[in-house]
């Protein structure tokens, strides 16, 4: 192909002119938005930092977390810190007294969510977290992490529907097992198990 000097430059200038003019009316070329006034819609799968889910109205009682510390162990940057509740006699309870996530360390990898067997920790989509307080405000405590299940349903409707279905099925199975156990106990009230054997 014979190359006319200057033709390549002209072609390039034509291309930039096309983009320049096009950016006024072609939506595909309008790529920037005026951020604080306008916001892009958050995608459903978007994740930022973890949050704790509670059922019902009370964030203390309804918290799904049982303090099994799996997430604390599996968290790659070790940003989760859990201390379990103890009752008056010092017996360990199945719920956390402290649940801190240091979001200045957290890298939003979602591994805590994947390993949680109780669907208690999920990813929040809140992203405007900048603050002037370097240590205090970037350490999220249990009270700030706890979010109602409705909030989770609003953020991730598809995923939340799956989780709800799974939890409902598990609760049903548990109730059925309990009823069966109850029925067994009522059928054979006081007989110890070994006495039925020949």
């Amino acid at each position: 192909m014979k190359h006319t000097p200057g033709w390549g430059l002209l072609k390039g200038l034509f291309e930039t002119a096309r983009n320049f003019v096009g950016s006024y009316y072609q939506p595909g070329r309008l790529t920037t938005i005026e951020y604080p006034d306008e916001r892009l819609p958050v995608q459903e799968n978007f994740r930022n930092f973890p949050m704790l889910i509670y059922d019902g109205a009370d964030p203390e009682r309804g918290l799904r977390c049982v303090g099994c510390k799996i997430c604390e162990k599996e968290c790659p940057p070790q940003c989760i810190y859990i201390v379990l509740e103890r009752d008056r006699s010092g017996k360990v309870q199945k719920r956390p007294r402290l649940f801190d996530i240091d979001v200045s360390v957290c890298m939003s990898c979602q591994i805590c969510v994947e390993v949680c067997p109780f669907d208690a920790i999920k990813m929040n989509t809140e992203y405007e977290l900048s603050t002037g307080d370097r240590f205090g405000a970037l350490l999220l405590r249990k009270a700030e992490l706890a979010k109602p299940n409705e909030y989770y349903r609003r953020l991730h409707p598809t995923e939340a529907a799956e989780v709800d279905a799974r939890l409902a099925a598990a609760a049903q199975a548990k109730a059925a097992a309990q009823a069966k156990e109850q029925a067994k106990l009522t059928a054979k009230p006081a007989k110890p198990a070994w006495s039925t054997q020949p």
Binding site: H3, P5, G6, W7, G8, L9, K11, G12, F14, E15, T16, N19, G28
Partner: peptide, 21 residues
Amino acid sequence: DEFPRFLDEFENLLTTNEIVL
């Protein structure tokens, strides 16, 4: 589907540009 169009645009802009060459 749209990506080749971008590549054409890119190549128009650059591939035969005398300064780039």
